[in-house]
Design a protein around this nucleic acid. Structure first.
Lengths: 138, 138
DNA sequence: CCAACTGTTATAGTCATCTATAACACCGAA
DNA sequence: TTCGGTGTTATAGATGACTATAACAGTTGG
């Protein structure tokens, strides 16, 4: 068995399907919705749910494994690593370019540092609410 | 004549060339390095400098024009719009998904909200320093 | 007019992405 | 062992993104 993983993909989006999937699984892990040790849906199962080819799912899982977030066991399934998120060095490196882009776009929109801080707080709250909503649904 | 536009592209990067170019021009506009009304390098001139095809530069300029940041005049050149950055609605919309990604990655790396705030401050300072360094060089 | 600049467009080749199909290898339970 | 699940790999094809080349069209100044 495996967690239901409320994921929604948008074909034809700017980001390819497998990258959308990567981001949403990362979000699920970060939010605790996918706990360390949890089993992810199998390639074929998730592929059927999302109506994509199994290879597309595998490609996403490959990226996640490359980031040391998950671990695959042939014949058993795919699991969230127990130390997922502990290798903060790699994840922190991911933060800087994102932060830069955010700062540049904020500057362009004449958004003050304080206003940006408020926006982040608001978005943080929204993320928490979404998580709680999902937990109620389950 | 046109501003020198210190830009560096990385072929083979995850982001295609024309998008890298878009980001860096946006940064130049946001930082004031490219003032409203300023003329951007011509397609062929910038293409020659960056060692890419003129069409690649045009594609980047197309995106920037779509975002109402620049304006092209056939036979004359490409210019930063006088009201660049004033349509903050569009730019603010760009902020939210970026903020979400940052928050998710921060959460994954066990980065507190306060630590994230500090990181943003640091990066803001770094951006300012880079801008000043460029101004000295010119 | 004409020459030298500007942006624009058409064409074509390369590559990433996604899909579909199939075969293979491993694990655990009946 | 056998069966049904798991991940893995190889192949091939369609589509679209990306880039390069070249020809086209407007603008300016001599």
């Amino acid at each position: 068995m495996s967690a239901p993983l409320h994921i929604h993909l948008t074909p034809g989006d700017e980001a390819p399907l497998y990258r959308q999937l990567v981001r949403q699984v990362v979000a699920a892990i970060a939010s605790g919705h996918l706990a360390p040790g949890a089993r992810l849906p199998s390639l074929r199962e998730l592929a059927k749910t999302l109506v994509v080819a199994p290879l597309t799912v595998k490609k996403a899982y490959d990226v996640l494994e490359e980031r040391d977030l998950i671990e695959t066991r042939r014949g058993q399934g795919t699991f969230v690593r127990l130390d997922a998120g502990s290798s903060s060095r790699e994840a922190t490196e991911r933060l800087r370019p994102l932060a830069r882009r955010l700062l540049v776009e904020a500057d362009l929109a004449n958004v003050d540092p304080e206003a940006l801080s408020l926006l982040l707080d608001r978005e943080r709250t929204r993320l928490r609410e979404e998580r709680e909503t999902r937990e109620e649904a389950s």
